[in-house]
Design a protein around this nucleic acid. Sequence first.
DNA 1: TTGACTTTTATAATGATTACAAAAATGTAG
DNA 2: CTACATTTTTGTAATCATTATAAAAGTCAA
Lengths: 134, 134
Amino acid sequence: MRDAKRILEEKDISPSLQRVIILKYLQEHPNHPTVEDVYHDLIDDIPTLSKTTIYNTLKLFTQKGIVYQLAVPGNEAHYDYSEGYHAHLLCEECGGIFDIESDISLNIENDLEGHLILGIEVIYRGICRNCRKE
Amino acid sequence: MRDAKRILEEKDISPSLQRVIILKYLQEHPNHPTVEDVYHDLIDDIPTLSKTTIYNTLKLFTQKGIVYQLAVPGNEAHYDYSEGYHAHLLCEECGGIFDIESDISLNIENDLEGHLILGIEVIYRGICRNCRKE
DNA sequence: TTGACTTTTATAATGATTACAAAAATGTAG
DNA sequence: CTACATTTTTGTAATCATTATAAAAGTCAA
Ligand SMILES: [Mn+2]
Ligand SMILES: [Mn+2]
Ligand SMILES: [Zn+2]
Ligand SMILES: [Zn+2]
């Protein structure tokens, strides 16, 4: 796992205590946590931590391309730090978000119908393997 | 363009005045309108129209698979009625949503890593051809 | 016409996110 | 070290989209 502090410095973000801890949390929790999840799990370590800081920090990380913000209709945003590209499966039964290996990003054109393409997000909808057993 | 009333009947939705008008609006406006857009454009035709009805109707349509709800982080939901599958480009400059021809859906497996796959959504992020000129 | 049922409507409530301004932390010149 | 400017964090209030609720209106068949 890459050093959180270094990642921030490379993106010209001063590595404050809160920012480093939030980034480390995302590195250690690839399960697409929400702002609420981050807050709930970190408030014991930093009792002064504010939800506003988490919102601000995750917005900053998203803008700098450090994390990916995953939108789910009508729900909170989920955040994803990951080194490698992957797609996601959104379970219609339990609402869970699962990583899916994918090679789609490999064949990205950087120009599609005149638009400049910077990235791609693939979301599958379906029933996850857990819910499927029932 | 398929008859809106018939589409609703096929999905066991009683074709009330409001539902038919909202579906027709979506058919005639493939530019991914929001609830606000629908309300703004239809309130003159039906002065009694309520925003709640639009929310309820679009949720119903989404559940029945008539329209597709497109989530954009931190913003309103956009709705898409369309016969054929296509991907979308989300412009980081102007926020616009553009249709992109895509054949990705053709090679969908119905089983990926144990999950049951029902659909796929592909979102490109980038700069649209309009913003690119500047 | 009555009454059951569906649909729409207006209003209030909720929940996520952002705006704002004060407090705390950090860095730097003297 | 101290004084001051700048950045970062924090708590609170405001905003915005969406949902809950219950009354009103519409539909339909006995
Ligand atoms: Mn992921
Ligand atoms: Mn579209
Ligand atoms: Zn599931
Ligand atoms: Zn654009």
